[in-house]
Nucleic acid binder design. Structure first.
Lengths: 246, 246
DNA sequence: GTCTATAAGTGGATAGAC
DNA sequence: GTCTATCCACTTATAGAC
């Protein structure tokens, strides 16, 4: 019941080969599903809504996906594929090697900053992860695995940063990892409700800064011209590089 | 649409007077609704489910509540009434006076500890607050108000504690308040997914302790025989009084 | 690969009997 | 105060035409 026997195929048909019509329809459906799940959660959205948004009928949609549950899981997995491929490589292929700690810290802060520009995705994870708390939810196993993995990885990152910064081990890295993960999640709910009142990135930076885990004054850690999309990585809220403390 | 013109009556018919049959049915329905919303969120639960659980038909239920939306709001408001009456009095009656800071800190930690014993309520707030992120959700205004109020109150508490502890104002109380609120929320999702791996109370204590906001070694702050329900306030996970740091 | 048509069921809500 | 009966919109899912 919660073991999840069937994995999603995800056959991109080689790396750069031009996608077939079916593959393009699949992609359109996944885009629509992501957008609508983001807006209203999993339970409140129907296959007809998604199909209509993607420009086909719900019967046509079901030709590509065996059911609503599987569609959700593919949406979630595709997001990880795009969003956290380098920062958390083990999310998709368990055991994959990760970059060095300083780079991962930068990628983590970039992820928070990017989230501040994509309310849809943030809402998707906020809503679905809360729903998936129920053991019977189709994405329960996905999120349970995900959080366990993230806590483990963050614990490693924090421990490495402590070692590098010479902060000693007065603070348990596992504790900080759990707090950091909770902080990032909790900020998202607040931010979705009142975006202007909750500068997510600044609050995360401040948390890490108080622990001495932020590079002293490395301007590269603020703006990383790396993630492909271009655009100026504008912080918007005008937070100082070391957090917002007085 | 989001102004919420009609308030719930909540007429307890004097304070101690024995409730009428209608009032008892209402209460039963609210209990059932709270339990089922906790288990599956708002959208996934039907009025028929709730009515059946409370031992009446869904038409009978609708005699007491004008619709599903109003039922949800009454469930949420009743929880606040019971749970945070003293800690956050302004949640129900804006402008009500609050107890002194040290006592509020203790009440706050007690609230976290109590949550660790009531997964149902935690799940209710986790799921519905995520859903309510959507501006069209019936509880959107409720949660927007709630979070704004909580941030304001927590900012005051933190500032008072800083003054009392003589920690200075190196750390912005508003920042800490936002982080603390996010921490508590985020921990709940993690805890619901994997309770043994996430000692909520210890992680919150640790956060506050690192800021020097916890009373040095006051045993009273750990167990407060105050909240009426009795029961031993057992911590369960065996966390040290000052947090779990090494 | 996508459609129409349809099955079989559940949703919130109302009317009126008792 | 609670019931039965009913309405209508909408759900997932299947069968078979094009």
């Amino acid at each position: 019941m919660s073991t999840g026997n069937g994995r999603a195929p995800y056959r991109p048909g080689a790396e750069g080969a031009r996608p077939s019509k079916g593959e393009r329809t699949r992609a359109r459906v996944l885009d629509s599903a992501a957008e609508l799940f983001s807006r209203s959660g999993f339970n409140a959205v129907s296959l007809r809504d998604i199909a209509a948004h993607a420009g086909l009928t719900h019967a046509g949609l079901l030709h590509h996906f065996p059911g609503k549950d599987r569609l959700l899981l593919e949406v979630l997995e595709r997001r990880d594929l795009i969003d956290a491929r380098e920062l958390f490589p083990g999310l998709l292929r368990p055991g994959s090697p990760a970059p060095e700690p300083a780079r991962r810290l930068r990628l983590l802060l970039e992820l928070v900053a990017r989230n501040s520009r994509t309310p849809g995705l943030v809402a998707l994870y906020a809503k679905v992860s809360a729903e998936a708390t129920d053991p019977d939810h189709p994405a329960h196993a996905y999120f349970a695995r995900r959080y366990r993995y993230l806590r483990t990885e963050l614990t490693g990152i924090v421990a490495d940063l402590q070692r590098a910064a010479g902060t000693g081990d007065a603070v348990d890295p596992g504790v900080v990892a759990g707090q950091l993960l909770a902080l990032m999640d909790g900020l998202q709910t607040q931010w979705l409700l009142e975006p202007e009142a909750v500068p997510m990135e600044a609050l995360v930076r401040d948390f890490l800064d108080r622990l001495g885990l932020l590079p002293t004054d490395d301007p590269e850690a603020t703006a990383g011209p790396e993630t492909g999309d271009g655009a100026g990585t504008e912080s918007g809220d005008g937070a100082e590089a070391g957090g917002v403390s007085r």
